[in-house]
Amino acid sequence: MAERTPLWAVFVLPALLVAVALVTAGVDAVLAAGARTGRPASLREVAVRAAGPGREVLRQLVQQPRRTRASDVPLARIGAALLPVAAVLAAVVLPLGFRSVSDLPDGIVWFNAMEALAWAAVWLAGWGPNSTLSLIGGYRFLAQGLAYELPHMLAITTAALGAESLRVGEVVDAQAGLWFAVWMPAAFGIYLLSAMAMAFWGPFDQPAGQDVAGGAAAELSGADRVLFLGGRWLLLVVAAAFSVPLFLGGGHGPLLPGWAWTVLKTAAVLAFLVWARRRIPTLRMERYLELAWVVLTPLAIAQALVVAVVVLNR
């Protein structure tokens, strides 16, 4: 079971998450620039590119805000702010090593509940501005939710089933020997897919897609835009980090201390996602949804059955 951390950890957690999100976005920006012109010429150029997301934040804050005609400003504003709030609150149960801010008894359900707030957030942000393109983006996320959420929930329940507990700390403890990723590979794979899908990022970026000029984010400006797009990165980081206690043994590992293993494993998962993004074009839901229900859902259930049988015979 994870130990409690002192209350000051509450202040460290958001700062840490924002830092990780900025670094990830920076790496992504460097890779994106590299995809265009090949390797960067100098270290300075790398630094300039990596600072891109940070500059973009400042630019958005300095720029004059836009309001579309007859828009519902509070609605869009709540939607945009909900995303980072949900992401950070979900991170409460994330253990760094073996200590989390609060190891709730139903930590997995809590994470699931917070992550599902993204449904509301994206739809609100899409509906608020009274713009066709952002409206389409908002609805796209609902369709996406219908596709990814169920295999996702089955995958995280499978991990909970393996430890027979909904407490994240106990799930980590159950992996002292063998990581869940090793004997529940299907659940792990599905989880990684849904991590990208819930952050509507990478191959699942249709709700904020290029073809609808930014979709749900199309009309957001200023602090709203920073919160929405930043919240998306936070959500991705939190979702990726949560795969570590669920499937990759949390802080367990030889030689290094627990927190170092958590950091390493999280970085590895994030690196994999950032790499995967470069390989795959955007998945459109009207094609993906069928796959999700006809292949991924039965697969997730089969995986849960295997784990249930193993648990019975333990």
Partner: peptide, 18 residues
């Protein structure tokens, strides 16, 4: 913060982009 640092404080009223 955004309100204090932005270049033009009053928002730009405009139609939706397409």
């Amino acid at each position: 913060l955004s309100i204090t640092v932005r270049a033009v404080r009053e928002p730009l009223h405009t139609g939706p982009f397409s």
